[in-house]
């Protein structure tokens, strides 16, 4: 019995479901990613060019003009742009997935209403395509770091571990928001505001250490804060992530994702009436 409950909340049904539809998820994600560049001359190349331009602009504006230093690192101000960019990669992955999920069901009404379609796949595709974008950006960051500093910290290898809680968190919230968005059409606007607020509450423009120590615990309650911090640790400072926080957040996100999945599955048959 205990094993059963553990398996359920540990995401076994969710993982099975995702595995079963892996081909469908992969195909829809690929179509979703390429759709954005359909008809454009450079096509997928934009996925590289856009983040590259962003990184260049950040470097110029913050590091060259404003000469802001990232207080955590003892290194030059050139790193500010990279620290900012690393934080943005994590946050964008989350926010893209969340923002797309509120109308992902209503936006695919033909899948929901008129087809034998596993609708739980739709929020997953939202997360997966955000993940693909993030991977492109990470590649840009990697190359940038190689060129600028002639090397990258070995802690890059932990990156997948850092991404895991972020993906699970996005998945869980996407399922919940996708479901709720069908019933509460105003949810999209609310989520938009919430994501904006979260952007400034998350240490993206500032290091976690800049938060007054009295508020440090409160800041860490924001799951994105520790994810962003561990991203920087791994990608830039060559530090191993804070394992306790990482494991903790992975477990919490796993439970959230399984709950989101279970909730969505329990209500997915009602969706065709509401769309």
């Amino acid at each position: 019995m205990n094993v059963k409950i553990l398996a359920k909340w540990g995401g076994v049904p969710m993982v099975c479901d995702l595995w079963r539809y892996r081909e469908l998820i992969a195909r829809l994600t690929w179509l979703e990613v390429t759709k954005r560049y359909k008809g454009s001359l450079l096509g997928l190349l934009w996925s590289i060019l856009t983040p590259l331009a962003m990184l260049a602009v950040y470097t110029f504006a913050f590091s060259v003009i404003l000469q802001i230093r990232w207080t955590e690192s003892g290194m030059g101000h050139l790193q500010f742009a990279m620290a900012l960019f690393a934080g943005l990669i994590a946050f964008d992955l989350f926010s893209r997935a969340i923002l797309s999920s509120s109308d992902i069901i209503t936006g695919h009404s033909s899948y929901v209403k008129r087809m034998v379609f596993p609708t739980q796949v739709l929020p997953v595709v939202g997360v997966a395509s955000a993940l693909v974008e993030a991977v492109f950006k990470l590649a840009v960051l990697l190359v940038w770091a190689l060129v600028a500093y002639g090397g990258i910290p070995w802690t890059w290898v932990f990156l997948p571990l850092g991404l895991l809680p972020l993906i699970l968190l996005s998945l869980g919230l996407s399922w919940i928001i996708a479901l709720a968005g069908v019933y509460l059409r105003d949810l999209g606007h609310f989520v938009g505001i919430a994501v904006q607020m979260l952007f400034f509450l998350t240490p993206i423009f500032y290091p976690l250490s800049a938060v007054p120590s009295s508020l440090r615990l409160v800041a860490l309650a924001n799951p994105l804060a520790s994810v962003v911090a561990s991203f920087r640790d791994m990608l830039l400072w060559g530090r191993t992530p804070d394992w306790i926080f990482l494991v903790l957040w992975t477990l919490v996100s796993l439970v959230l994702a399984s709950a989101g999945h279970a909730l969505f599955m329990s209500r997915k048959m009602d969706l065709s009436e509401e769309v």
């Binding site: 539809y21 081909e23 195909r27 033909s110 034998v116």
Partner: peptide, 23 residues
């Protein structure tokens, strides 16, 4: 079920065939 159901209008026929197959 209905004419055109099961197809995503933005995708090509070929892509839709593969999506349907994956489903």
């Amino acid at each position: 079920l209905e004419l055109g159901s099961g197809f995503n209008p933005e995708f090509t026929g070929r892509e839709n065939v593969f999506i349907n197959g994956a489903i």
